[in-house]
Structures are given as structure tokens and as C-alpha cells.
Design a binder for these strands. Structure first.
Lengths: 138, 138
DNA sequence: CCCATATAGTTGCATAGCTAACCAATTGAG
DNA sequence: CTCAATTGGTTAGCTATGCAACTATATGGG
């Protein structure tokens, strides 16, 4: 019925992938959103909220809530900057640091598995196209 | 940072497309989900909830709620079937019938515009790949 | 015929996302 | 220097989605 619809097929695929990545991060008891938020901060400790929103391509409000959740879980903490009283830096706690390699490994593993199952070229080509299409949209 | 991640890029694109299609259906005061639900039922009046869930590739519970919303808006109605007391058919109301062509036109228009902006081959190829990847996932 | 099992749909609870409106701090034009 | 405009972040309120547990109705084996 919506066989040729870009919206329909992309959103449906996104929901399927949500399930696959949920499974991958389940050992850490983190959802994909939480895991990606954490990975972003672990890759650049001290980043600001707006920077996180940009990195994750989500709205600032959503970034606020993602950080709230991980602060409550004891994995992130906020520190206000000296220079600008509006900003606050996001830092991983020691507990988060112990997860860093595991999270990155879990991601690599699921990626490698899918590349294997789908074919390496298909995989990379699709991701490139997704980025290219996104770059043409508002 | 997540430049080569299938999950990340697909979900990010899905969110962008959500915005584009929201705009397309705004004249009808319908969200994309509502519009697609309605289009599915208009294409096959009397379909059952589980069939709708299958068509839209969403969970049955989500289909229940989508129909709830459109029943409240006076666009759909439920009718229990004679044969099986568990089932209920979903039918468009007369109000919904007047929207049918408009909705399908709006979809065609946004699709045509994107095909034009992205290139016809890119568009179709991407959709095919999305379906193919989905078909390899659980 | 009756109970165990299966199926259609619903409900409860939770997550993630958005926009719009807001607060607080900074900046800059006059 | 002061006040208007901007900017970083938060809050409120909404939608869509999922899973798990539930209700109610069939159905089929003994």
C-alpha cells in the first residue's frame, strides 16, 4: 500500500532498528537513546547541551531530558562554566567511564553483524544515501 | 561522531521526514500517523485492527490508539462483525471520504517534490534498500 | 459438552521526540 | 550605563510508539 513511500519505509525501518539496537544495549540496561547520549559525552567530556543536541540531531529540549535521565542514573553530571552563567558542561561520572569501551564494542558488534548479514556495500551505501537525503531536507 | 551508524542516520532521517510530511498534511489538520491510518482504511474500508497494524507496520496496541483518535475526530467508526465477536471492522465516515483524494494528492505532491529535489533514481533506490534491509531484520 | 488454548482487541505504563513558551544570563546599541 | 535583543537551557503539554498484562470470544481435543 505505501510500498514506494519514502516516509513510510524510512520510519518503519527506524522502528525495526530501534529494536535491534535496544537488544544490543540491553546488557548495560540502557536504551539506544541513552547509550548514544552517553557515548557522545564520553567522546567529548564537558560538551554543552546545545552541542549535544547538535551531535545527536535532536531538539535542545530532548537533550535536556536525556541528560536528566542519565544524571538520575548516576552516569552524567552537569557543571556550570565560569565564563558564561547560562551554559552548563556535561561530564561523565567514573561509573560512566567504566562503560565506555563496552558501549563502543556493543555498537561495533551489532554494526559488524548487520554488515555481514546485509552485505558491506549495501550497508555503507544506504547510510551514505540517508545522510545525503537528510542534507537536502530542512 | 556517529557518521557511519545505520541506526543513528536512519532514525535522524526519519525525524526529518516526519517534519516534511507533517507540513504536507497540515492543511487537513492531521499528523502523518493519522493521515496514513486514514489512507489505509480509505483504501480498504472494513479492515480489521490487526490488518491495519500489519499494513502500517506498528504494534496492535498502537493501531488501537490511532483508531481511537480518528473515531474521536469523527473520521472513523468501528463495527463489530457478525461472525466473530472479538473482531471489529474499521470504516471511514462520510467526512473521511471527502478527504480521500486530498490526502492522496498531498502525498503524491510531496513525493514528487522530493523525487525532483533528490533525483528520481536516488529516491527509488533508497526506498528499495530500506525495504530490503527491513526484510532482513527481526 | 467442557475446559485448555489461541486469538482480537484493549489498557497500563514507560520512553523519546517535538514545539512553544518561558527564565536567566550575556551582549551590544545608543 | 541601561535596556532591548539574543542565547543557553528548562518546562509544559502533546504525539507516537512499544511491551506486557489483561478481557472476551472462539475453537478443538477428549
Amino acid at each position: 500500500m505505501f510500498d514506494h513511500c519514502l516516509y513510510f519505509n524510512t520510519t518503519a525501518l527506524a522502528r525495526q532498528l530501534e529494536r535491534v539496537w535496544s537488544e544490543a544495549f540491553k546488557p548495560f540496561d540502557l536504551t539506544p537513546s541513552q547509550a548514544f547520549t552517553l557515548r557522545a559525552v564520553l567522546a567529548k567530556p564537558g560538551m554543552l547541551h546545545s552541542e549535544l543536541a547538535g551531535t545527536l540531531r535532536i531538539a535542545r529540549a530532548t537533550a535536556t531530558r536525556a541528560v536528566d535521565g542519565l544524571v538520575a542514573r548516576g552516569l552524567l553530571e552537569r557543571r556550570s562554566t565560569k565564563q558564561d552563567g547560562r551554559e552548563s558542561e556535561i561530564h561523565p561520572t567514573p561509573a560512566a567511564l567504566t562503560l565506555k569501551d563496552g558501549l563502543n564494542d556493543a555498537s561495533s558488534k551489532v554494526t559488524a553483524r548487520l554488515k555481514d548479514e546485509l552485505g558491506d556495500g549495501t550497508f555503507a551505501g544506504f547510510v551514505e544515501q540517508a545522510k545525503s537525503i537528510g542534507s537536502h531536507l530542512p
